[in-house]
Design a protein around this nucleic acid. Structure first.
Lengths: 342, 342
DNA sequence: TTGTAAGCGTTATCAC
DNA sequence: GTGATAACGCTTACAA
């Protein structure tokens, strides 16, 4: 059905070898013959078989990218950055999603190995993953990988992500300074490192101030969706608990929190502050202009790529990196007036 | 570096042939030997080489999916649906984006052909694409493809997308009935079929009512982003034009329109209505609860898959399909009271 | 500069 | 039931 190298070799009356050399722009072939080959290839609509090429070259030109799910602004923006970088580097991307399902994650790792990707970028998201050993399949097959956004501490691979600990501490500090004392965190499972970092930041900061951060101030969201966050928050306020600061995992849950405050007649930011993560929704589009902890996707992806390239080329081990975040203050936090502090 | 079939054949003391048969669960091999092979395969961490397999089988098990860009709620939701369907069908997905760049689109078509995908799902987005001939590369290589969401009329392939013409007519009808007379459309280039369908719907409906829809009521958005929409709309209102109905291409541009109305002191929906597309942002998250034309991603993807499967299996030609949309009325349109109509 | 031929890791067709 | 062996389409020494 499709035309092969042999076909174009025949048509151009050369050997397959010279045909190959010509088309791959390698030297050692007469310009005339090269031209002839290239022309007949174009004429016959030849497209080299990537599978055969990968097999023969022992190089696929592919990089595997694994994320939890694609219809999430954070991941899809991350992917966009990755994709551009990969394009610049001359790689093709194999993007897969796991839906945070360990079986899919395993399957996709095998997929990567099967197609012999030259490197893998993995956003891990399995909670309670006691045995992420399967990821070592990559290493066993000599495939460099770097964790992005999160990591499995049991696996020996570099990770690059935001410095969430520092970022959250900064946020909590701001909240504290502007008078908040009753902190809540609304987010994913703490067996996921990135959530752990956030929680620890809150706990540590408050501990330093002699304030307790009780377990029930951590509102676990099975899935960080608007509805879930709304219900969780509604329950909390209905219980009569005092809440004057909420850090929520993403824009949608933050907005749910805001809406619950509205519903309950709690004034934001006067009586309660909210700080969100990411800065991916236009602030003017939302019911309120969220204050948030912005992550530097560009820098994260950059560093990931540098790592990957070094690992692929020099067999380097790679080095983990924490990217600084940026606290963006908008309408869900009080203004900080230095004068007021005194 | 990685273990091959030969390795496990040796280790299990069988021929490569029986090893292959055993691992692929094909009959004609003794249960005992099969077990032995499977075990040694597991022990050695064998993962079959997909490139070699594709080559030998002349089947890749891959489906190519091409979309304009990934960090867009509409596309990423579409992809999520596609991905699930593909998973159920036992295919792996190769997802690529074009950034609406014709060179990337060409490159990615070659990529698909190169890796011999068994089918392609393509969301075309090149405006002024006078010569989409390159897409026929797929057909030349016997790769079935179906357009999704949009199509190039010059290319002979089935398309499945929303019945935008009907959907927009319905929306315009509602707006008309609730008193709107000064319609504007805010969206992408009309050389893209899907936009054309929307524009024609407005024009045709109004023509039937003896109302003109002048060219300058079509506000072209180079990129449908919040800022662009805001500026376009701001200019329009500043010019003093009377505007009482806007149909905008997506939630973000619709919200920009809303914000401009607010800024100019125009009351929505009393003095002006807005209808958006898609229903992908939680309404409660936005500055206003948008009325919108919802597309049925599930049905679109379903039909696409059926087409693809039929084309792959029976060599069927496939059949185009327009999926019904659903008009969702919320806070940016007036309420329609039957009594009022009289 | 060109061609021959051996591989790459599978699957598939045969004999045995 | 099992094992040679020839594909699959390409790259790459090595010869010519």
């Amino acid at each position: 059905m499709s035309v092969s190298l042999r076909d174009i070799a025949k048509a151009a009356q050369v050997s397959e070898a010279t045909a190959s050399l010509s088309l791959n722009g390698r030297k050692g072939v007469n310009d005339k013959t090269r031209q002839k080959v290239i022309e007949t290839a174009k004429k016959l609509g030849y497209v080299s078989n990537g599978n055969a090429r990968s097999l023969a070259r022992k190089k696929s030109g592919l990089i595997g990218v694994m994320i939890p799910n694609i219809s999430n602004l954070f991941y899809s923006n991350l992917v966009r950055h990755i994709e551009r970088a990969l394009r610049d580097m001359g790689y093709k991307m194999i993007l897969v999603t796991t839906e945070s399902n360990i079986n899919y994650e395993k399957e996709m790792i095998r997929h990567f190995v099967s197609f012999r990707v030259e490197g893998a970028i993995i956003y891990p998201s399995i909670k309670q993953n006691n045995n992420p050993e399967y990821i070592n399949l990559l290493k066993q097959n000599g495939i460099p990988m770097v964790f992005i956004g999160n990591y499995y501490p049991e696996i020996d691979a570099p990770h690059v992500m935001s410095d969430l600990y520092k970022g959250v501490k900064e946020a909590v500090d701001y909240l504290f300074i502007t008078g908040c004392r009753h902190f809540y965190y609304l987010g994913g499972c703490k067996s996921i490192i990135s959530n752990q970092m956030k929680l620890n930041a809150i706990r540590d900061y408050l501990a330093d101030r002699g304030i307790e951060f009780p377990d029930d101030h951590y509102l676990l969201l099975e899935h960080t969706r608007y509805e879930n966050a709304f219900i969780r928050m509604d329950d909390l306020l209905s219980s009569g608990k005092k809440v004057d600061a909420v850090i929520a995992a993403d824009a949608f849950s933050s907005l749910a929190v805001f809406n619950v405050f509205q519903k309950k007649g709690v004034k934001v930011p006067e009586e309660a502050s909210i700080i969100s993560f990411d800065n991916l929704l236009y602030p003017d589009v939302c019911v309120t202009r969220l204050s948030c902890i912005e992550q530097d996707l560009g820098s994260i992806v950059n560093c990931t790529m540098q790592n990957l390239q070094a690992m692929i080329q020099d067999g380097s081990k790679g080095v983990s990196h924490l990217s600084p975040t940026k606290l963006i203050l908008r309408d869900t936090t009080k203004q900080y007036l230095a004068a007021e502090k005194k």
